[in-house]
Design a binder for these strands. Structure first.
Ligand SMILES: NC(=O)c1ccc[n+]([C@@H]2O[C@H](COP(=O)([O-])OP(=O)(O)OC[C@H]3O[C@@H](n4cnc5c(N)ncnc54)[C@H](O)[C@@H]3O)[C@@H](O)[C@H]2O)c1
Ligand SMILES: NC(=O)c1ccc[n+]([C@@H]2O[C@H](COP(=O)([O-])OP(=O)(O)OC[C@H]3O[C@@H](n4cnc5c(N)ncnc54)[C@H](O)[C@@H]3O)[C@@H](O)[C@H]2O)c1
Lengths: 205, 205
DNA sequence: ATATTACTGTTAAATAAATAACAACGTTAA
DNA sequence: TTAACGTTGTTATTTATTTAACAGTAATAT
């Protein structure tokens, strides 16, 4: 398996999603420029990305959707279900749990964690919630390798370290703070305040 | 005003936030390597970014926080309050409205829009909500140039076009779909499903 | 005074990413 | 049968971004 860049992985996910939709619509073949348009990238870039995963289309018919899906999935998606945890069952945490509940089959939010006693030992938005004390046990039991942080800013670093301790290798962080963690842990910050500032900046230019 | 790259703008926002916190803590000077650590970047990159905005520190004392804040703000932040709109007052929209309410003074979510009659003409999570019919009028009246899309996927493209019509120049899009819009409109996608897939991918590597 | 130190700002080099260029190849139409 | 077409895969080129190198500088210690 070649190691794909962060950007390439991101785009492959987009292609995968668009291809799934096309397949549902009953389409069986597609040209690079068509798929590129749907994905919001240039056709050359799409072909370049596809080159990286070893799949080939035909100059005459373009890409065969079902085969291409298989190739992308082989590179990106785990063969078995990937279990994900979420820490912080607040406004945002609940919205996320509700959103992901029963949605993706490959990735599943399987456990919630919170320090608030009101929230633990019950199912919220389709996801069972545990005490923070259970975090290591549950993560190891369910082989959870990725987690979502949706706790207040000041708690985030501490939670990140606990997750690291529990064997987590990837974190999607919503707290507006840069986590300091070993390089072996992949962190993706979804920082809304920051993003909105960026959007506001470019909207002015 | 030099035109800063997307990445640089993003990092400057992080520096700005960290500097504000440092100022609150009573610190008045800081060295590049200290601030860089807090921001999660390399010291060289930080100095490079700072070079771009024209501010200079002293080799002896490092950067003067209050001055540096002013310089960054001058480049990034609007002098007047920037009003932002949000379309889609669902689970996510409400969480966002609650989060931003009374938080930032520079950027403010000033109007919500939804097609659901239950939600319009009242204040939800600290933000007044309007009918979709009012979108152009309100956006122009409040000089809204940036907007958040939090409507279901299938509605997003249509809403984006309506926003474009209403004079919006920047969009933060939460719907898992690539919006097709003129290049003059800056779009930032916060695609959680995609991001989670990416995190899961790198967590496996 | 002067050397040392630890930092900054800036230029140069290296790396990463996107774009362009084009040969190879089926398909279609003449 | 063959020429024209439109598309792919791949290699080059360009552009963007990051990292490294180092001269300049103010404070401090000698
Ligand atoms: N709500 C949003 O739309 C939004 C937008 C941008 C950023 N964020 C960020 O996302 C995070 C969560 O935001 P929110 O609005 O859901 O906050 P919230 O206050 O609604 O929820 C926070 C949750 O974390 C739990 N918690 C607190 N400390 C904890 C700990 N030590 N261990 C485990 N759980 C703990 C609380 O019990 C609560 O359930 C914050 O960092 C916030 O800055 C949220
Ligand atoms: N909830 C999450 O955490 C989450 C996570 C990832 C992505 N998203 C995306 O964010 C968007 C919103 O998610 P949600 O969970 O809040 O959904 P939701 O169903 O709770 O809310 C959607 C809101 O949009 C409104 N709406 C529908 N059509 C509209 C139209 N044409 N004009 C104006 N308003 C309209 C609805 O009335 C509703 O209030 C979706 O695109 C979803 O895919 C949400």
């Amino acid at each position: 398996m070649a190691d794909l860049s962060k950007k390439t992985v991101e785009r492959l996910c987009v292609y995968h999603r668009e291809l799934l939709e096309l397949e549902n619509e009953g389409t069986d073949h597609i040209f690079s420029h068509q798929l590129a348009k749907r994905a919001g990238v240039s056709p050359v870039q799409l072909r370049h990305d596809i080159m990286g995963i070893g799949y080939s289309g035909s100059p005459a018919r373009g890409y065969e959707i079902s085969e291409m899906l298989k190739s992308i999935a082989k590179q990106l998606l785990s063969t078995k279900q990937q279990n994900v945890a979420i820490v912080g069952i607040g406004n945002l945490g609940r919205a996320i749990m509700a959103y992901f509940h029963g949605r993706r089959e490959n990735i599943r939010i399987i456990a919630g964690f919170d320090s608030d006693l009101q929230k633990i030992n019950r199912t919220i938005s389709g996801c069972y919630c545990y005490s923070m004390n259970d975090i290591e046990r549950i993560c190891k039991y369910h082989k959870i390798k990725a987690a979502i942080i949706a706790v207040p800013e000041r708690e985030a670093q501490d939670i990140a370290e606990k997750l690291s301790q529990a064997g987590i290798r990837g974190i999607m962080n919503f707290a507006p703070v840069r986590l300091v963690l070993p390089d072996s842990i992949y962190v993706e910050n979804l920082d809304m305040a920051l993003t909105l500032e960026k959007v506001a900046y470019f909207a002015r230019q």
